[in-house]
């Protein structure tokens, strides 16, 4: 495959998925400017390092991986981050939010999770990636992903049963 064709494939992926990339970034940082900045940094890194991506089929998981690394780096170094000790307050709020509803929205809940668990929730429930794709993005295996998923839901005090790969959203 020519370099040119490779490049077109990568650029195509970025253009088509720009809103997704933005939403993932936003769900980590919850700030428009920062999310835009992270998306920009991610695109530049993807392009500058595209020679290291040997198999262009992996552009999706690789792109997410760089994006998430950028987000995590931001959270790690940003002093204004929300800390995990608010979790208890939050879950009370979560359960009291809509007691009768048969739907649970994890959008606000992810803020309270530690980074690794946050990542699986965002990728699985928001971006609807498959477990094996999440494993590839996070450089772990499917069992680890599953464990983290359960752990995250347990932390949020959500007693949910998660079928293998076809969760009803």
């Amino acid at each position: 495959m020519s370099d040119y064709k490779n490049d077109r494939q990568i650029i195509g992926f970025i253009r088509e998925n720009q809103e997704k990339l933005y939403r993932v970034a936003y769900s980590y940082v919850k700030n428009e400017e920062t999310a835009l900045d992270i998306v920009q940094d991610t695109i530049v890194k993807v392009l500058q390092n595209r020679h290291t991506l040997r198999n262009k089929e992996f552009i999706k998981t690789w792109g997410y991986k760089i994006l998430i690394n950028e987000c995590l780096m931001y959270l790690r170094k940003n002093k204004n981050m929300i800390y995990f000790d608010n979790l208890e307050n939050y879950t009370q709020q979560l359960t009291s939010e809509a007691p009768d509803s048969d739907k649970i929205d994890l959008y606000n809940a992810v803020d309270k999770l530690p980074p690794k668990l946050k990542t699986v929730i965002i990728l699985r429930f928001f971006e609807q990636l498959k477990l094996d794709e999440i494993a590839s993005v996070t450089s772990t295996n499917q069992n680890t992903v599953k464990t983290r998923l359960y752990k995250a839901l347990k932390m949020l005090k959500l007693d949910l049963d998660i079928p293998e790969d076809d969760i009803n959203l």
């Binding site: 650029i11 809103e19 939403r23 998306v39 940094d41 392009l47 509803s101 959203l169």
Partner: peptide, 26 residues
């Protein structure tokens, strides 16, 4: 059994500058 939705996530507003930012970064 409650279902998990991603409605709020899907409704994250996309800033109008996104496309320009993406093109600049490209």
């Amino acid at each position: 059994m409650k279902k998990i939705t991603n409605d709020k996530y899907k409704n994250i507003p996309i800033p109008s500058e996104l496309n320009e930012c993406v093109e600049n970064a490209l």
